[in-house]
Design a protein around this nucleic acid. Structure first.
Length: 305
DNA sequence: AAAGCAACCAACCGCTATCGT
DNA sequence: CACGATAGCGGTTGGTTGCTT
């Protein structure tokens, strides 16, 4: 139930009952219908004209984060999670900028994802989530595992796997070379096509399973009817492709033919080489270091890593 | 069954940038 | 240039839900 506050912005103005808290169905309907008729913008006057006892700011936020038709609901796909990790490593807490590359996702949603799930892992490791250590951890373990999860979902269809050629996962190879997603080598407008066919989400009231659950990850993957042959890995219209010669991997949009170089963004794989056999982490981790101490029960324990 | 706790996320708040006058 | 209105951004909070004990 939304609280109602009395606010007198100006003693000469009549007091306005401004509602706060969760929006009701009636309020949502009012806002949707008003915007459908009159369009967005001028939120303060919109709120008044629509008969909403809300601030313009609140109306704008409700519309942008919840009511807008192209908002994508439901769990973040592994592809989206990977994209968030990559872009955050590049831009930091520039949520709106990151959100621009995840169509249908709001900055608020991405921010919540980062704070509730990513930062939680950092806390459990007793490291700063914006530290180089955590970034290295993300590079060396988290992202390869996300890639592995995505790969697993499609490997049954494909004779050649990403990991077999690219050492994408420490669990499959002694070397982990975190791939990175390049957005710089393709037209920005094409980036959105990575997520061309989003999974239709559940109701927002449904708990999102942690990405650390492999079951949840796999369950989130698209049920694609389009499968390509080696050496690509299909995800709906998006496939991963390994390049054995270059040890690179790409996003390939099969509908457009665009390929997204995963090497060139900012996460230079060479800086994140982890040699487990030699107990040597180029990403400033050594055997017996904090990473190994913690990897069994925190981030790296993504159900069996 | 119920209390405690954690996770999630919608909503709020403060601040800054931009634009029009 | 100054000022106010508006829009946008990022940090934070509080309510709800589900899980554990």
């Amino acid at each position: 139930m939304a609280a109602v506050t009395k606010r007198a912005c100006n003693p000469n103005e009549e007091e306005i009952d401004l509602r706060r808290g969760p929006w009701t169905l009636e309020e949502d309907t009012l806002l949707i219908h008003y915007i459908a008729s009159h369009g967005e913008g001028h939120w303060n006057s919109l709120a008044k004209c629509a008969g909403l006892k809300r601030t313009g700011k609140s109306c704008r936020l409700r519309w942008l984060n919840y009511l807008k038709p192209d908002i994508k609901r439901g769990n973040l796909t592994p592809q989206e999670q990977l994209m968030i990790l990559e872009l955050h490593s590049k831009w930091g807490n520039r949520w709106s900028k990151i959100a621009q590359h995840l169509p249908g996702r709001t900055d608020n949603e991405i921010k919540n994802y980062w704070r509730t799930r990513v930062q939680k892992q950092a806390r459990q490791l007793n490291i700063e989530s914006n530290s180089k250590r955590f970034l290295d951890a993300v590079r060396c373990f988290w992202m390869p595992t996300l890639l592995q999860k995505m790969e697993q979902s499609s490997s049954s269809y494909l004779p050649t796997t990403l990991s077999s050629q690219n050492s994408a996962s420490p669990s499959l190879s002694p070397n982990c070379s975190a791939p990175s997603i390049s957005l710089s080598t393709s037209p920005p407008s094409k980036v959105s096509q990575i997520f061309e066919h989003p999974i239709n989400g559940n109701s927002s009231s449904v708990r999102s399973p942690s990405i650390f659950s492999s079951d949840s990850l796999i369950s989130q993957l698209p049920q694609t009817s389009e499968r390509l042959t080696s050496p690509t890995h299909a995800f709906d219209h998006t496939v991963y492709s390994s390049s054995p010669a270059l040890n690179d991997c790409y996003y390939v949009d099969t509908s457009s033919g665009y390929a997204y170089d995963m090497e060139g963004l900012n996460l230079d794989p060479a800086s994140a080489i982890c040699d487990f056999n030699n107990q040597q982490f180029d990403c400033q981790m050594t055997a017996g270091d904090w990473m190994l101490d913690n990897m069994t029960d925190t981030l790296w324990n993504m159900e069996g890593m």
